[in-house]
Amino acid sequence: MIFIVGGRGRLGQALREEYKADEVVCVERAVYQQWGASDSLYDITAYFQRYAQPGAVVYICSGLLDSTLASETLHNVNFRLPRNIIQAVSPMGIRAVTFGTAMEGMLTANSYVQSKLALSRFVSEMSGELTPALHIRIHTLYGGGEPSPFMFLGLIMASLRDDKPFAMTLGRQLREYHHVSDDAAAVRALVDYSSTGVVELSHGQPVTLKALAEAVFESAGKGHLLQLGALPEPQQENFTQVFTRSSVLEGVMFRDAVAGVVEYINTLVES
């Protein structure tokens, strides 16, 4: 049986599509929203003792992405809640799968990244007596609905819709963009392979933000809105590292990032 915590989100919805309907249980938000509290272990344990059997998998897709939120809020949702679930289900023989960011080793001054880094450390340091958890570090997702308004693609989309200038850095930052459906298939491949510990989900084909932005604006016929170099270069960023694709993912097909993002944004802007 597959359990999804955060089944309404982008990744949670895509993972639901990877399995037969009768194999998946989406835990309601009203059930799990207090699971980040220090006294929640009893409630979590009681829930899974009632509904799950040993060998089940719990995908913990709930989380907050906005780094401008209070660090305590991010820590509670992104670290404490999944940690508590792991502590409750691992002794029961249930596998927990959590999600972080490929930037965990780079943007260490970012509160969002810090909350995910704390989770990856917890997973990597788990006792061998427990059912091992899997923490998957993912890259930037697109598809499955509109982008978050504070994210790079969300800001681009707002610029195109409103015909307003888009100010950005020189765009030398390297990023992998993954369609959420492709990543859902890759996540399942990692789980079916019985991967444990901390794993990076990479396809190894990064693009610069400059190249991505230019392609999107030019495709929309609005290249004049793009203002490269209008914002200062970030101090802490990935300008050089290219991630390696795991051999476990060799059979997973990933869409071309630039072409995929252009089609995605154009479809949303025109809708």
Rank of each mutant, 00 (worst) to 15 (best):
A52K: 07
V242E: 04
R8L: 01
Q13G: 09
F122Y: 14
R175E: 02
N78I: 00
A37G: 14
T45N: 11
E263M: 08
L249G: 00
L268R: 03
A70P: 04
V25Y: 04
Y264N: 02
F122K: 07
V248K: 03
S246R: 08
R16S: 12
G223D: 07
P234T: 11
R80S: 13
S38Y: 12
L190M: 11
N266R: 12
P91F: 06
G128P: 02
S40Y: 08
R80M: 12
F166Y: 10
S38R: 11
P234L: 15
P82D: 05
V258P: 00
Q33M: 08
L174H: 05
E23C: 06
R188K: 14
T98W: 01
G6D: 01
P165L: 12
A37P: 04
G105K: 09
S148R: 10
D22A: 11
V97T: 00
A211C: 11
D256C: 04
R80D: 14
N76K: 11
D182R: 03
F122V: 08
Q13W: 07
Y19P: 06
S111W: 06
A46L: 14
L174C: 08
D66G: 10
L201V: 01
Q227L: 13
M168D: 02
I138L: 15
P232E: 14
P149V: 10
L130M: 15
V123M: 01
L249Q: 05
L81G: 05
A133S: 06
F217V: 04
A257G: 07
S271A: 15
E233A: 09
V113M: 01
Y47F: 15
